[in-house]
């Protein structure tokens, strides 16, 4: 390995993206404190005040700073509560997918054999199945709901983790330090958890950070197709899709959640980039 070139690459990129981290912290704080921050119940419908524009436009008022949607619900409140769903869906779906993927990757990599074959074939099936169709079919079977959306999105994501971890384990297994602990009689579980897991952490974290961003967008796409968390639930994705019929007259319905998704996803991607460069410069994306 050429140390000079690596060092040369790393220096400019490892500067922490302060802005992105600050934004993400803010979003997380908003999500946690949503009930205290939101001016009103995000699901409250008042038909007579529907399509109120934001406060700086004609007809708007500070009572609804970002306006109201087609059912007269307060956009700001929905935006605030929506951060919860987006973050929960993003984090839990990725954590679940990554968790299962890592466990299967460790197991298949370490034990190999029939287990390895079966699980990797299941992974092939998973990857070759057109995701949107799987999502539509599964959501139709399961019905709408937060848990089901998370389930569907995590089903999609376990394979890359399993493959990546398996590859790493296969490489590590033959290395001297693992052979050594095995020789002194360490148990399988202990070897994998204590000695192999830390070595695959870096690529997993990087992959996960990018998946969180993609999962948040995927939730929006599911909502667009009418397969969301639930009609009354305030989610950014659902807000965009509810506003799509009003793009030119009541742009505020979908513009604010659209902006929120973009900023959040952008921050997560920037942080992901930074993690990649500082944790594992050999990764490409």
């Amino acid at each position: 390995m050429n140390s000079q070139s690596t060092a040369g690459r790393r220096t400019p990129a490892t500067r922490a993206p302060i802005g992105a981290i600050a934004i993400l912290t803010c979003v997380a704080a908003v999500a946690v404190f949503a009930p205290w921050l939101a001016p009103e119940n995000p699901e409250k419908i008042v038909l007579t005040r529907r399509l109120t524009p934001p406060f700086w436009m004609e007809g708007g008022s500070l009572a609804h700073p970002l306006g109201t949607d087609s059912l007269g619900r307060d956009i700001l409140s929905r935006l605030i509560f929506g951060s919860r769903v987006s973050l929960i869906v993003g984090l839990v779906a990725v954590a679940a997918g990554a968790g299962v993927g890592i466990a299967l990757g460790l197991a298949t990599g370490y034990y190999g054999g029939v287990l390895d074959n079966v699980i990797m074939r299941i992974g092939d099936v998973q990857l070759a199945f057109p995701f949107i169709l799987l999502a539509i079919a599964l959501m139709a079977v399961l019905g709408e709901g937060l848990g089901n959306v998370i389930l569907v999105l995590s089903i999609r994501s376990w394979v890359p983790y399993a493959r990546m971890v398996r590859g790493q384990v296969l490489a590590l297994k033959e290395q001297e330090f693992v052979q050594a602990v095995r020789a002194i009689g360490a148990k399988d579980l202990r070897i994998t958890v204590k000695h192999i897991l830390p070595n695959v952490a870096a690529p997993v974290i990087v992959l996960a950070s990018f998946s969180v961003a993609r999962t948040i967008i995927a939730e929006a796409s599911l909502s667009f197709l009418g397969l969301g968390v639930g009609v009354s639930a305030a989610t950014w994705g659902a807000m965009i899709s509810q506003g799509k019929d009003y793009l030119t007259d009541a742009w505020w319905i979908s513009a604010f959640p659209g902006l929120a998704i973009m900023i959040t996803v952008l921050s997560i991607n920037l942080i992901g980039d930074w993690l990649r460069d500082s944790l594992d410069p050999s990764l490409k994306y």
């Binding site: 961003a213 929006a220 965009i240 899709s241 793009l247 030119t248 659209g258």
Partner: peptide, 18 residues
């Protein structure tokens, strides 16, 4: 590139149409 990865495709499509 970051923006391109952060924009939902339906949003982009609707905008292009208009």
């Amino acid at each position: 590139a970051m923006l391109g990865q952060s924009v939902p495709d339906f949003w982009l499509g609707l905008m292009l149409i208009y």
